[in-house]
Design a protein around this nucleic acid. Sequence first.
DNA 1: CAGACTCCCGGAAACGTTTACAGGAAACAG
DNA 2: CTGTTTCCTGTAAACGTTTCCGGGAGTCTG
Lengths: 355, 355
Amino acid sequence: MGRKRLPESADSRPTVHTVAARAGVSIASASRVLNGVGGSEETIRKVRAAAAEVGYVPNAIARSLQSQRTGLVALAVEDIGNPVYVSMMRAIEAVVAASGRQLLVHATGGQIANETALLRRLANRYVDGMILSPIRVTDDHLAALVQSPVPVVVIGQLGADAPVDNVRTDSRRGVALAVEHLVASGRRRIGFVNGPLDTVPGAARDAGFRAALAAHAVPVDERLVEVGDFQYAAGRAATERLLARARPDALVCANDLIAVGALHALLAAGHRVPEDVAVVGMDDTELAQMMFPQLSSVSLGSAERGRRAAELLLQRIADPALPPRREQVSPSLAVRASSRAVGPASPPSTEKVPS
Amino acid sequence: MGRKRLPESADSRPTVHTVAARAGVSIASASRVLNGVGGSEETIRKVRAAAAEVGYVPNAIARSLQSQRTGLVALAVEDIGNPVYVSMMRAIEAVVAASGRQLLVHATGGQIANETALLRRLANRYVDGMILSPIRVTDDHLAALVQSPVPVVVIGQLGADAPVDNVRTDSRRGVALAVEHLVASGRRRIGFVNGPLDTVPGAARDAGFRAALAAHAVPVDERLVEVGDFQYAAGRAATERLLARARPDALVCANDLIAVGALHALLAAGHRVPEDVAVVGMDDTELAQMMFPQLSSVSLGSAERGRRAAELLLQRIADPALPPRREQVSPSLAVRASSRAVGPASPPSTEKVPS
DNA sequence: CAGACTCCCGGAAACGTTTACAGGAAACAG
DNA sequence: CTGTTTCCTGTAAACGTTTCCGGGAGTCTG
């Protein structure tokens, strides 16, 4: 027995062969016992004992090679520093962990090259599936997506015809919620601090902003519109540029990082929030509630989108023949102090403000 | 040729056998060409062509099984939402990616059970090494650490005798920097909002705070000390409790999340920062600069610690026989508006403040 | 021209696991 | 007592790659 294998040298890690030899059974029996399928009482006892004595732990790689599954799921997002992705990550992680898998996170920096490289690399099967949340979508992307050898779920807008599982939100509607709220509170000089227009969310939010203003018969004043990127520093800089040339009474910001930057710029310039200028962010991240005053924000359901994407992915891994599905999460608005209505006479409302 | 293998069915993914058969060479030759070692010009041409035609991509798992390396490095931190870990992650990711590996991030929630489970799971070799940043360290930890079958580097304080690669900072000294700065600015009623005392950083910072006050002959007023956990909400709540019973003129906070919570509590209660109360955080994360006023914060070199830990890990993976090493990163203080000295008469300084 | 050397190639083993298959023993029915 | 069923076991193949090794052809040297 066991003649095909050399005697185990003392320092190498134990394999199923080690255990089998020590228990005096074949590797097949050892494997069966270790996996809890079959085996006589006596065999089970011997194998368990032998495994415990040598401290056997199965090798995940060999198991993966045999089973053709790695137990890993990848998530690719633009920026792990953005709290919106943190909440997405948490939601995905919960679902993924519940299925006994682990999550592998990639930061793409929004670089298309990175994302397509990642997609191509999927072919080497280091992962059972992937959730991708791109902010720019190119034909390269789509091509790589549809012929990906492992399941991919996309979070975000995608061409209507793309045969890819997809979870999206309606960010145009999201912007509209913010605008409606501000208009209803009597604001008229509503500004907009957006991210890059060549991104999918940037373009959608721009369109949503213009449509929403039009719906309320408020003309768009281009001096009240600024563009940076989706980061804090850019949001602050963009707001400073905007304030240098115009006097908004409200600012809609394309995400919470931008909104925090805008808030900073406003306060530093001596404007009161919300008395002089109301601020509404987007994504409704933890950050929004940390600010003083707390930021109103449009929730785009990032946790919910993450959860659903993870579920779609797991289902597709289980059954790759499933038809492509598309789910949508509705936006909602959380009104907080930064856009609370202020009385006709300007003194601070219930919220206590430093004199 | 190729008689041992069944003819490839059209739908299965190409393997090196497919390529070899198509090119009319052995799998050994095909493998050599694909790895860029050896092969005649003619063979190289044929194999490359065949690989391109069938769209061959090597299987990462099979390669790992053979090479005994997965190309993955794990990072386990308490909370991926804490920006201090984000910057650590970024620094680690940069080093790891430069070595052609990928980073796998685990969130442990600070649970000891999770961390030891993770360490034990290392034995199955799904990863080439791991960086662990525990906030509590038990004997279980140490036991699991020293007998880990794959290299582990710990970020944080560890028993002096533990034979484990370790990157640490001096957080007692960090707290002292904050206290010195505040004392030098004339503050005397210095409060402290800490995390749990049963954590390594919590205990160290508590000790540092008391030692620093003693060094300046300022008695510790226990009413000025509060404990929560290392989160925003806890920091805010702890500060509210503290303010309900005492009037500090400065607050040292055990991390930036707590500091943001403290700032919020102070402003909401109508205190001016820094005129009435100075605030100093720790970790010097991006968050500190996003606040208004910007938060002073003690940098514990999180990015630097991450970078060094990653380098130690890569070196140990390359040569497991290396003796255990220990590196230390010095803290430094970034003074910003939240603790800037204010003139003897109290009106706001150069920093413009809403009237 | 013989021998040594270099280069390239193919066969086969190895990484560590799971599992299809066949054989043997025990239990059971007739 | 024989034939069938059941249960357990071991052999060996398979997952897809890399690599050791031996052999053959070609080249160079003396």
